[in-house]
């Protein structure tokens, strides 16, 4: 038995989980402060969903067909929403790479804090940031004619997207801890995230793509999540033809379950890889 007095006593006798939650809150607070002190980052998060909405609605929208009578704005907004959260999730990777480069991660690694809080605090802050982006997007969408069928569906769709983005941001985190510079995170993830976002049902119906691409574009996780979000947002207003051709032919419940399965799978795999990577950092 070793008993050591450290001069200052630790507060209470809390379990590991209690401390892990408090450490996560402390780190999330730090990350949000940091984010708020980088106005250029915030500006980007606010401006990019507005720009993309206007671009697709007014520049490309007129040329996009195969919508089975669906209003393009109602088709578009869930797609832009996924694109917004996926791109913003990159912040997780940039910020961790920056902390690593500046040596701050070494300070954290020498402290008796929960290691999960380094990631937990990161994705918590980034998810809030992402939620803000979604709200801006919604406001823009409403202004240009977006009309969801019902509010609960809209809210569920938003949560589904945020959860998916959270899982993906753990992938970014892994890259951030591996490449050690914010610029390199971009270079390493762009070739993966770009095709996943654009070779998907986000902006145009998969039907309009060449047949060799359709299989991938229909079944890859980003499309599954978009279809689930769309299905939730369109609710009963979607016709059977629209369901068949625009939403992968599945019902809402099935799409939501598929998205959750992808989300959990991606989150668990990258979460485990991240903690392993963190443990094995060579200072």
């Amino acid at each position: 038995m070793t008993t050591t007095s450290t001069g200052i006593s630790s507060a209470g006798t809390n379990g590991r989980l209690g401390w892990a939650i408090r450490d996560t809150a402390a780190m999330a607070g730090r990350n949000l402060r940091r984010l708020m002190r980088q106005p250029e980052q915030i500006m980007f998060n606010l401006v990019s969903p507005i720009m993309f909405t206007l671009l697709f609605r007014y520049v490309f929208g007129g040329a996009i067909g195969g919508l089975q009578g669906l209003n393009y704005v109602n088709f578009l907004i869930p797609g832009i929403a996924v694109q917004t959260v996926l791109f913003s999730a990159g912040v997780t990777g940039f910020a961790l790479a920056d902390d690593l480069q500046k040596g701050f991660i070494n300070r954290l690694r020498s402290l008796p804090m929960a290691r999960s809080a380094v990631f937990g605090g990161r994705v918590a802050a980034d998810t809030l940031n992402n939620a803000l982006g979604l709200i801006i997007l919604l406001a823009t969408g409403f202004a240009v004619g977006f009309r969801p069928a019902n509010v609960p569906g809209l809210v569920l769709a938003g949560l589904l997207l945020l959860l998916f983005a959270l899982a993906v941001s753990l992938g970014y985190a892994l890259v951030g801890l591996s490449v050690r510079s914010p610029e390199a995170v971009n270079a390493a993830t762009f070739p993966i995230i770009f095709p996943l976002t654009f070779a998907s049902s986000a902006f145009v119906p998969v039907e309009t793509m060449p047949s060799w691409l359709q299989g991938f574009a229909t079944h890859q996780p980003v499309s599954v999540v978009i279809n689930a979000a769309r299905s939730l947002i369109l609710g009963d207003t979607a016709t059977p033809e629209q369901r068949d051709l625009l939403l992968g032919g599945s019902g809402t419940a099935s799409l939501v379950l598929q998205s959750l399965a992808w989300t959990i799978g991606i989150g668990v795999v990258f979460g485990l890889l991240c903690t392993r990577r963190y443990r094995n950092l060579t200072a």
């Binding site: 902390d99 701050f104 991660i105 300070r107 804090m113 809080a117």
Partner: peptide
């Protein structure tokens, strides 16, 4: 290994919190 975007006080307070 300090956080440049925090103040001196914030840096030390954060380390205190993470030391429980």
């Amino acid at each position: 290994a300090v956080d440049e975007s925090l103040t001196g006080i914030e840096n030390l307070t954060l380390v205190g919190r993470l030391n429980h």
